[in-house]
Amino acid sequence: MIKKSMQFSTLALAMGLAVSTAQAQDKGTVHLAYVEWSDAVASTNVVRAVLEQAGFEVDITSLSAAAMWQSVATGDADAMTTAWLPTTHADYYERLKDQVVDLGVSLDGTKLGLVVPSSSEMESIADINEYADGIDGKITGIDPGAGIMSLTEEVIEAYDLDVNLQSGSGATMTAALQDAVNNDEDIVVTGWTPHWKFARWDLKYLEDPENVFGGAEQIHTIARIGLEEDMPEAYAILDAFEWTPEEMGEVQLMNQEEGSDPYENAKKWVEENQDLVQEWLPES
């Protein structure tokens, strides 16, 4: 009798898992595009974990900023959680706004600018020329397709700076920043908030009296046209997704731990923050 009961329980569990898997497959696959920026990695993986909790399959694809916007506009990707508006991604948005759906703000309280160690004597972007030799005549940037890079080119022109903008990636920028901080050297890097580097090192933004970088920005979630009709539940989750810079910062710091996996970190964070996650999930 006990043996039969155990067999029945095992069979029921197997059937339950099969039904759960079938339901997930029936809901379809959500394709998310993102850029290899710390904020995008954090938000994309958290949304992935939440969509999976709701029963969806999720694929994520790393692209350049331009390709990310284009992939949502063409429908190759269903959504992205990394639209910096109204300034950083203004060009992409103006060109593609009729081909995408803006789901609104997912994070409020961002900032863009040029960042230096707090020990630096530079206080304003206008001071850079005076200290150009100490920073090897360059501003250390990230990938060339990023909106902050084109804004920094405008800054160089507006302030008549005698420096070059060096492109690279988020990783090369933070590596250069770490070396400069460790060696008590000056450096100017492209910076934005939220970013884990402000929790790791003592840094400051250079004042921007010409206001080229603009004021505070917001991060928006952008979806493809037709997603609401094709996958209304996934659309509702993406539409409801909203968190704070502090909450994002928790995930960003987890991702900086050596050997950590952003996806596993996101799943752990989602598991530990179910009260917030439930606000993003549609009522059953």
Rank of each mutant, 00 (worst) to 15 (best):
V277R: 05
E258Y: 08
L177F: 12
K197E: 14
L103D: 01
N182C: 02
E157P: 03
D136I: 00
G226Q: 13
T193N: 01
V50A: 01
S119F: 14
E271V: 06
R224S: 13
I187Y: 02
V35L: 05
D202Y: 02
E36R: 11
G249R: 07
A65S: 14
Q70P: 00
A126H: 10
A24I: 05
L32N: 06
A240N: 15
E264R: 14
A176M: 07
S106T: 00
A18H: 02
V181E: 10
S119H: 08
A175K: 15
F198T: 03
N265W: 04
M68G: 09
A90R: 12
L177N: 11
P86D: 15
E207N: 12
S5R: 12
I156Q: 06
V105Q: 08
L161N: 07
A66K: 09
E242L: 02
E121C: 02
G259I: 10
D261T: 03
L63I: 06
A176Q: 15
A146E: 11
G259T: 11
A12N: 01
F241N: 02
V100F: 06
L112R: 08
V58Q: 03
A83G: 13
G226Y: 12
A66E: 13
H31G: 00
K97C: 04
G147R: 02
V163L: 11
V277T: 05
P194S: 11
L103P: 02
V163R: 09
I135W: 04
S5A: 14
E94Q: 15
D239Y: 12
S167H: 14
A236N: 07
M15P: 02
T190S: 07
D261R: 05
D108I: 01
H89Q: 09
D275L: 08
A73R: 04
S124K: 14
I60Q: 12
Y92G: 07
V212A: 10
W37Q: 11
G113Q: 02
S150H: 15
A22I: 11
S71F: 06
Y263M: 07
E283T: 13
K111G: 01
K111T: 13
T190P: 00
S5P: 01
K204T: 03
G214C: 08
Q178P: 05
A14C: 07
V116H: 09
H31R: 13
T88C: 09
K138F: 00
V277D: 04
A180G: 09
D202I: 05
D261Y: 05
A171K: 15
Q252A: 09
G214Q: 03
A266M: 12
L161H: 04
L281K: 04
